[in-house]
Write a protein that binds this DNA or RNA. Sequence first.
DNA 1: TTTGAAATATATGTCGTACATATGTCATAC
DNA 2: GTATGACATATGTACGACATATATTTCAAA
Lengths: 229, 229
Amino acid sequence: MPLTRLRPIEHLSQVDKIELRLQEYLRNEEFNPGDPLPKEMEIAKALGVSRTAVREAISRFKMLGIIESRRNRGMVIRRPDVLRNMQRVMDPRLLDGDTMKDIFEMRLVVELGLAHILFRRKTPEFIEKLESIARTEDGTTDRIDLLKLDVDFHSALYQMSGNETIIRFQRMLMPIFDFVDSVILQKPRMNQPLNIATHWDLIEELKGGTPTGFMHKMESHLWYFFEKI
Amino acid sequence: MPLTRLRPIEHLSQVDKIELRLQEYLRNEEFNPGDPLPKEMEIAKALGVSRTAVREAISRFKMLGIIESRRNRGMVIRRPDVLRNMQRVMDPRLLDGDTMKDIFEMRLVVELGLAHILFRRKTPEFIEKLESIARTEDGTTDRIDLLKLDVDFHSALYQMSGNETIIRFQRMLMPIFDFVDSVILQKPRMNQPLNIATHWDLIEELKGGTPTGFMHKMESHLWYFFEKI
DNA sequence: TTTGAAATATATGTCGTACATATGTCATAC
DNA sequence: GTATGACATATGTACGACATATATTTCAAA
């Protein structure tokens, strides 16, 4: 028998264990936002540990936004922000290449899937916004500026979805996108197909076309990236 | 001027402030995984606070997976898991309805956008897996079992994408999906269009069709949910 | 009786110290 | 040169003290 994985021991510190206990406590007791929690000393007594350790563990849940506390009022359950905690670790410097590739691919997937939502929620104002960006692009030649305008265009599409979670999701992943973009741009240019869809093509489809047609054009538009990853 | 929002004061505790300082410190110093951090006492001295407070703040980063520490070896920067921290707060009980609706909608978006990836990464084994599930469905009448099989079918599609982040994303959101599903099922049944695509239709398209056609069928398949939210 | 100010009780927030524990370093012995 | 043991050091845990904010009670004045 190979010793390949002979150290699944994972020295958990006292605080880590307390965190786990609290996690399962919160889940099992089925707390709702606003519900009060036991006092720090009561928890410490119940677990047989010091208040210091309990506070270190609870401090973690405070960061997650699950627990809130005020002087003499005790602690209560709070409604957390789903994306905030993912945001905290969204740093290209900390993530590995494979994860970033996955995330970038997911962006492409979302953008393709967005088509139907867009047709449902499009308004003249949003269309005008897109056209404004495209017009600015027509009068720009600087490569960096164009990259920035491209980001603006796609951001505007997300805005149009009206889905706050998707919008924030995109904004959160922006640092990763920028990073992958810069990596892709450094690679030698590959031969693009001539019939690649432009931003104007997307706008026209959005104005008078169909979701399927839009998706087709978007696929063409993103083709370049699909091939790269 | 209305007093609508005249209390943006947000009493930040000492520990919260330390957390912010450390966050900006980590960002500005451009740490990479493996890089060592100053000692707890040095940080405490530099910030003019107690070691206790510093430890409470650092404890938070340990939960995020950004910092790791070992006795006498000091603290080092670590590669965090992006989804783990989002997972922690993914509890239907803690989130509000609007957020869950957004998340559910995003699932639909992802599933539509998945089409191209699926055609690129499909294999006979995966197709067989899908057919196996569909066959089981044909021999099942119990409503709960069918719901579970439906989840299995779509999970298998995610698996097929080969994108680990997307797979985990779907798995993470499962509790929300279940919740929304149960809510939708409780509503009075709406009249479905007769030409709604079945799982078999999706499989056929996947075997001999095109990404666009698959997306079209998937759209039809998910139409019911689209209308509900 | 009502009102309002002061005293009191209480739970969290911060701090300092002491000690436990693991780990790296170094000297000593063979 | 290797092994053993002593020592130094940074984190981990615990305890006690006090600060601070807030709820509750007390009590005096209107």
